[in-house]
Simulated assay, not measured.
Amino acid sequence: MSEVYQVTEIYIYPIKSLAGISLNQAKTEEMGFENDRRWMLINSENVHVTQREYPIMSQFYPQISDGKIKIAFESENHEFSMDEFLENPIKSNVWEDKSEVFEVSKTSSKWFSDKLGFECRLVKIIKSGDRKHESSRTNEIYNVSLADGYPYLLIGTQSLDFLNEKLEEKITIKRFRPNIVVSTKNAHEEDDFKTFTIGEVQFKNIKPCGRCIMVNNDPQKGIVKKEPLKTLSKYRDVNNSVLFGTNIVSLNSGIISVGDEVVF
């Protein structure tokens, strides 16, 4: 590839399915970026809670500062220490993957329960290996965080531009919750990336990402619409899976930054 590909945006999502945080620089770990989806909300049956069922979760905005995570929701705020958790482990699942997590605190769980209107707990994954995901594509097992399936999601800028050409109401990349956005020349060429390096880190492409109804949730309003899944399904449906972006893993730890070149 002769074109110059550069990182244009980096995101983490500290608490699964809540709003993300835009970064200029991030540290890669086996499980994903540092502090990316290390926390999640579970219901009374210890099942993970997401925007798929509760679109309003997009309206909870996290910030990280001085070892604490502060959550803003409407006119209220809540914060907790990133090192905080209760001793008793909880057996939970992220889809089909068994996960060991720990409740952060009774106070945090009550705050989220009050705001969402049902009983839930804020939990944290402590260490690599507490949740494993077996890839049907590679038949390998990966240590991942509390993300849906893989540690990282990469999207090319032209994939969004190509989609927006077809939409009456334009959308932003935030609909697709990427970790890494890369400037590209052609739509969906990231599907065919193999092994590549960004900054200090080598990445390996696993497979294109199948998308669900969650991308129809407008993150600015917490309202589910018909697009972009309706339009995407007309030209990105492969074996009943609507593809957008690609799942990748990091092969080493290191720092990547906005502006870094993608080297193939």
Rank of each mutant, 00 (worst) to 15 (best):
E3D: 12
Y5S: 06
I10W: 02
Y11M: 14
Y11F: 12
Y13W: 07
S17K: 15
L18A: 14
I21K: 14
I21F: 05
S22V: 12
L23I: 04
A26R: 07
K27A: 02
T28N: 10
G32C: 15
D36V: 05
D36Y: 04
I42L: 06
I42A: 10
V47P: 04
H48I: 02
V49H: 11
R52W: 05
R52Y: 07
E53C: 04
Y54C: 01
P55T: 05
Q59H: 14
P62G: 08
Q63G: 06
K68R: 10
I69K: 13
I69G: 06
K70A: 00
I71V: 04
S75N: 11
S81I: 00
L86S: 00
N93Y: 10
W95V: 14
D97L: 14
K98S: 13
S99W: 05
S99Y: 07
V101F: 00
K106M: 10
T107Q: 13
F112A: 06
F112I: 11
D114R: 15
D114F: 08
K115S: 15
G117D: 15
F118P: 15
F118W: 12
E119N: 06
R121V: 14
R121C: 08
V123S: 09
I125V: 09
D130M: 03
R131E: 09
K132M: 06
H133C: 08
S135H: 00
S135N: 03
R137T: 15
R137F: 00
T138I: 00
E140D: 05
N143Y: 07
V144W: 05
S145G: 15
D148R: 02
G149M: 12
Y150P: 06
P151C: 06
Y152P: 11
Y152A: 10
I155K: 09
T157N: 05
Q158T: 10
Q158I: 01
D161F: 02
D161V: 00
F162A: 09
F162M: 01
E165N: 08
K166I: 00
E168R: 05
E168G: 07
E169R: 13
I171S: 06
T172Q: 09
T172L: 01
I173V: 15
K174N: 15
K174A: 13
N179T: 12
I180L: 02
V181P: 11
S183L: 00
N186K: 15
N186E: 07
A187D: 07
H188S: 04
E190R: 08
D191C: 11
D192C: 09
F193V: 14
T195Q: 14
T197I: 10
T197M: 04
T197C: 07
I198K: 09
E200I: 01
F203V: 11
K204Y: 03
N205R: 14
N205L: 07
I206W: 03
K207A: 01
P208L: 13
G210D: 02
M214H: 00
M214C: 04
V215Y: 01
Q220N: 15
K225W: 05
K225A: 10
L229D: 10
T231S: 04
S233Q: 09
R236C: 02
R236P: 02
R236V: 05
V238N: 04
N239R: 06
S241L: 01
V242G: 11
N247W: 08
I248L: 03
I248F: 08
V249A: 15
V249K: 01
S250K: 10
S253W: 10
I256S: 15
I256R: 11
I256H: 03
G259N: 00
G259P: 07
D260P: 05
E261R: 12
